[in-house]
Computed example of a mutant assay.
Amino acid sequence: MDWGSALQGLLGGVLIGASASWLMAALGRVAGISGIVSGLLFDRPTGDTAWRLTFLLGLVSGPVLLLLLGEGGNVAGQPDAVVGPPVGGAGLMLAAGALVGFGTGIGSGCTSGHGVCGLSRLSVRSLMATVTFLVAGMVTVYVSRHLMGVGA
């Protein structure tokens, strides 16, 4: 077991939980990324833009800072690469992103909203949504890797 990776994962989880707790305590808002982005792009109630932009800036600034410091980790699956090209191509990646966006609209939230915030509030609806996300993800990986041979 790689203890460095395990500790990084633990620290990341603690930071995600702390930020979700802070957002709920300070503003009474759920830290669901799809809802934050949707509210920023479409709903935008008066006075609601600043915290959404700040949250999203914080969301992307951490990984960018780690990349600049050379601590980004290997998410490409190649020994010397930090971020690699999409395995299935840009078109497949755009289609997958559109389907995820569509799904978060149908599911009234995403994994961060349901999985992190909803489960911590003992929401049965969030439990069902999170189980659905996980099962759909497992089926997608199985079909794409084992039946279609993508990324194998």
Rank of each mutant, 00 (worst) to 15 (best):
T46L: 15
V124S: 11
I106Q: 06
A95K: 10
F42G: 04
G32Y: 02
A81W: 03
G97N: 13
G70C: 11
G58P: 00
L99C: 08
S108E: 10
R145L: 07
T132N: 06
T132H: 09
V75Y: 12
T132Y: 12
P79I: 10
V141H: 03
R44W: 04
L57W: 02
L99R: 15
A90I: 06
A50T: 15
T49L: 15
F42W: 13
L56I: 05
W22C: 03
L65H: 01
G62I: 03
M138I: 08
L11C: 03
L41G: 00
G109F: 06
R52I: 14
A136L: 05
W3C: 09
G103A: 11
G77Y: 14
G73I: 06
E71L: 12
L15T: 04
M138C: 03
R29T: 00
G113C: 06
V83F: 14
L56V: 04
G13R: 14
A26N: 03
V75T: 12
G118M: 02
A152P: 00
G12E: 07
P45I: 12
V30L: 02
E71C: 15
Y142V: 06
R121F: 12
T104K: 10
V14T: 13
S19V: 13
W3E: 12
M93N: 05
L27M: 03
G28W: 07
M138H: 10
A136N: 05
A96E: 15
M24A: 13
G47Q: 09
V75M: 13
L127Q: 06
A96L: 10
V64S: 04
Y142W: 07
